[in-house]
Design a protein around this nucleic acid. Structure first.
Length: 264
DNA sequence: ATGGTGGGTAGCCCA
């Protein structure tokens, strides 16, 4: 059995105590982090090594974005895609070398897309759609067993948001983003493993805004974080958990971790 | 309808 976690940590250096607590309490084999907000040289390598997470692939950037995959099972970095061609660190790909040998694990941080869902007045929204289109062309050519996980910044299903009608014009849940994500899904026949194990219409959120006084009040969440996979590896998924408790921790991330277990 | 909070950085950007 292999367990794989994903967590948008919103600054790994600030939140290393919370990461350590999560690893001690849940001990996933692999942890995919997004928004590490640091360069590789300042990544807390020693703290991860002390916990047994001695394998890693860190694609960092100063101050913004940045992704890292850390692991206690062997893996090696195989790719860093720049789907915007603008130098932002939003992806790192690894290949599992021990348990799960041969599986490719892609860690991605899709752009948030700004506030206005109209590319003519908000370039960030256009960049998000373009990023997805380039990912789609990339996925068309995939010929290996692949998992892709991370912060997709899109909540595609009605039950992925606290209020479907109210969010239809809010970036992350607009029909255009959902259609664009669906084309990405079709490009490789990806299975949405999270929803496979926690089927709609079950409540399923991974992010709650910092701007609410009490994140539980009204439960205004969205499922922005995902784990998708090639059909054959999706069949090996056995369990999936949303670790909501971290949203109550002191100085928490606005995202919570997802953990998926595979029979690999 | 609006603004609300948070992180990194360094004179605002991003989420």
């Amino acid at each position: 059995m292999i367990s794989i976690a994903t967590w948008n940590i919103n600054s790994v250096r600030l939140r290393m105590p919370q990461v350590e607590r999560f690893l001690n309490e849940h001990a996933p084999d692999v942890l995919c982090l997004q928004e590490i907000k640091t360069v590789e040289e300042l990544f807390p390598h020693e703290a991860f090594e002390a916990l047994g997470y001695t394998y890693r692939a860190v694609h960092g950037q100063k101050g913004y974005h940045g992704v890292a995959t850390v692991s206690r099972i062997p893996l090696r970095e195989v790719s860093r895609n720049d789907w915007q061609a603008n130098g932002e660190a939003r992806h790192v790909g690894v290949e599992l070398l021990g348990p799960g040998q041969g599986v490719v694990l892609e860690n991605v941080y899709i752009p948030a897309g700004g506030d206005e869902p109209d590319r003519t007045i908000n370039p960030k929204f256009g960049q998000k759609l373009d990023f997805l289109e380039r990912m789609t062309r990339w996925a068309d050519k995939l010929d290996r067993t692949t998992l892709i996980t991370g912060d997709f910044n899109i909540a595609p299903l009605e039950s992925d948001v606290w209020n479907h009608k109210q969010l239809l014009k809010v970036v992350s849940h607009t029909p255009l983003e959902i259609e664009t994500l669906a084309r990405f899904g079709d490009a490789h026949g990806w299975a949405d493993i999270g929803r496979q194990l926690l089927p709609a219409p079950a409540r399923y959120y991974s992010w709650w805004s910092y701007r609410a006084k009490d994140w539980r009040e009204g439960d205004r969440g969205r499922r922005l974080d995902h784990i998708w996979g090639s059909p054959e590896v999706a069949k090996q998924a056995r369990a999936h958990r949303v670790i909501e408790e971290t949203r109550d921790w002191v100085q928490c991330s606005d995202h919570v971790p997802l953990i998926t277990e595979f029979d690999l």
